[in-house]
Amino acid sequence: MTERASLNALVVFQVGPIPIGLEVVTTWVIMAVLVGIAWFGTRRLSATQPSRFQIILEMVVGFLEDLIRDVMGAEPEVFLPLIGTLFLYIVTCNLSPLIPGVKPPTAHVETTGALGLIVFFTVHSLGVRQRGLLGYLRTYLEPTFIFLPLNILGEFTRTFALMVRLAGNIMSHELTIAVVIGLAGLFVPIPFMALSILVGLVQAYIFTILAAVFIGGAMGTINTNTP
């Protein structure tokens, strides 16, 4: 059962008491790549004669801003670092297995759990800041106080679902491709890999949208109650 390791972090090296897993190293690399691309693309910005690369970056940022504006109904400047970085990081992670030998960090519950926890705490802190502590707590009594346990349960399950959905999808696709490669190594896995591209993009989009919906709902700009 060599595949057992795919659920647990593979420790690459240890810094003092801290074990550094493979997904953390991959994340560093991905961070370096993303920041490098951003730095390279924004080196020479021009308002009148943008380079091709700048146009692509502007399209990406514009897409994220539109997404935030549409889903949250709020001005995108405040949430762009959180929501935009979520999307870019998850997309990069999901597409990273296309490079041979790279294991996507989002296939590990640690990574998606970190993202889910960040969203969780953002939701509650913003909700408290927006409505005050009592006002925010009162939203758990809606529509009636009977719903209080359901609402509290929903808070945790939806965060849990958020992180497990992403990790499960990516991990299952990794496993599927691995199994197919084990059955027939040549050419056959290619459709599955193409499908994994689609799944990776869609899952990143869904994670971002859901995070935006949760935050917007806590702020009261939109009204949703999702599990």
Partner: peptide, 10 residues
């Protein structure tokens, strides 16, 4: 649709 599908797929 995507959000809904994600919910169902959960």
């Amino acid at each position: 649709l995507f959000v809904g599908l994600a919910m169902i797929e959960t």
